[in-house]
Structure formats: C-alpha cells, structure tokens
Amino acid sequence: MTESLITAILIFTLASFTGFEIINKIPPTLHTPLMSGSNAISGICVIGAVLVAGGETGTTLSTVLGVVAIACAMVNVVGGFLVTDRMLQMFKKKES
C-alpha cells in the first residue's frame, strides 16, 4: 500500500509539473476555452464512477452514488468538450 501510495504521489507531482510547463504562456484569447476544455478533462472521474457503480461488491447505495456520479461527470465531459468546440469554431483569424 505504501509503495503504491508513493508511486501515486510521484505521478501526481510529475503530472503537475507537466501541466505547469505545457499551459504556461497561454494567450488571453484562449483563457475561457482552456477552462472549459480542461474542465471536461477533469470529468475523467467518470472512470472512478464506472468502477464504483458496476463493481462486483457493490451495494444498492454505492451503485446509486456511482450512477449519479457517472451522470454528473458525463455532463461535464460531453458538455465541456462540445461547448469548447462551439467556442473555438468562432475564433477566426480573418473574416471569410
């Protein structure tokens, strides 16, 4: 357990540094799409929700919690990616 915890902390730390590096110097024009797009990515907890909802040892309550979590996370994922795309397609360089 301790070993996997340390690995998890390691991964978290390295991913944070990666995040800081790749998102640095984002132009202000893209601030809103970056927020809604990254928010869609945080909907990744849908995976945890699927594991909780469909788990073999699930109880009624944990299944219900899992299903509600799936629904919330999916609104986040689908709504987030779609609305980001909707915004980004408005960002034009020059008028056609």
Partner: peptide
C-alpha cells in the same frame, strides 16, 4: 485520474 486531475489543477492555478 491522478494525471488528469494534476494537469487540470495546474492549468487552473496558472489562470
């Protein structure tokens, strides 16, 4: 989950 969470956390902090 850990990786994505950290990425989004970092981008939000930068903003």
């Amino acid at each position: 989950l850990i990786i994505s969470g950290a990425l989004v956390g970092a981008s939000g902090l930068i903003l």
